[in-house]
Design a protein around this nucleic acid. Structure first.
Lengths: 135, 135
DNA sequence: GGCACGCTACTCGGATAATTCGTGTCCGAGTGCAATTGG
DNA sequence: CCAATTGCACTCGGACACGAATTATCCGAGTAGCGTGCC
């Protein structure tokens, strides 16, 4: 039970995009070199974000990925769900009727975490990130 | 990013032990058949719980596993940590100084979930479980 | 009748395979830019 | 000089291997209970 590296990459990429604030798309290789990550694998991850509607892709020369308009609304949870999926973290595989107590507790615990992640907006973090970079 | 089935099994087993409340140990096969799980695999999981100090094992005839004395104190988090490990769910693998903002947010989110799981005691759930069984 | 011994059956425990999921890589399709060439 | 065209380089996107972790299984070591035989 661990968050995948893909989520790690995706969050950092989103944070970078928001912090840069440029309208111009940013290529994959540029970020990959900066973070020491495989460019092609990062591309695969960003495809998921595009399908989730969080970012846009532009092909051709000077292409790359850029944030969509409503970036202020994008939360950590949005990114995580786009990568990890929206399925519940815990699925009771036993057969003892529908009302599994264990399941209820785990879902509630998950909800606590998700609620916090929902409140964490990428844009807010980006400001702190920019401030840290500037000094 | 999902909880493993092992955690599922372990939680249900602990709940059953607490609900039964018997001093006599309960064998693995008894539970495995009841839940439709591989007995030998369940045994492997319970070994982890023993090493974590949550339950005790008894060999020989009429042997099995039984709760330790301080069962009222055992929480969901104890069981989960025994199976999944105590490592953080999120580890930033990038190289951009020690104060990773993403890491901080994720750790805080994890803490929210763990705090809730810490408050959920097995013994309390066991009472509800017994009540549901009785009716 | 009581006790000691040995046997048997049952249990746990670690060592050993199969499967799934995450990670990483490669190559082809598509697109925009730009130089070139003709009007 | 301007514009259409053609070529190219750069980009994304899906298809293809590799590896680790989880899941599952088998078999051996150890232990407690029980029957039997001896004192």
């Amino acid at each position: 039970m661990k968050f995948s590296k893909a989520t790690d990459y995706a969050l950092h990429y989103m944070l970078y995009l928001a912090a840069t604030g440029s309208d111009k798309p940013i290529g994959v290789v540029q970020l990959a070199e900066k973070q020491g990550v495989s460019p092609t694998y990062l591309s695969k991850i960003l495809t998921k974000l595009v399908k989730a509607g969080l970012i846009e892709s532009a092909s051709g020369a000077n292409g790359g990925y850029s944030l969509k308009r409503k970036q202020e609304e994008i939360s950590f949870l949005d990114v995580i769900h786009a990568i990890e999926g929206t399925a519940s973290l815990f699925e009771c595989g036993l057969k003892h009727g529908p009302g599994c107590l264990v399941q209820q507790v785990m879902v509630e615990a998950e909800e606590r975490m998700e609620q916090y992640l929902r409140d964490q907006k990428i844009s807010v973090l980006a400001e702190q990130y920019s401030a840290a970079q500037a000094k």
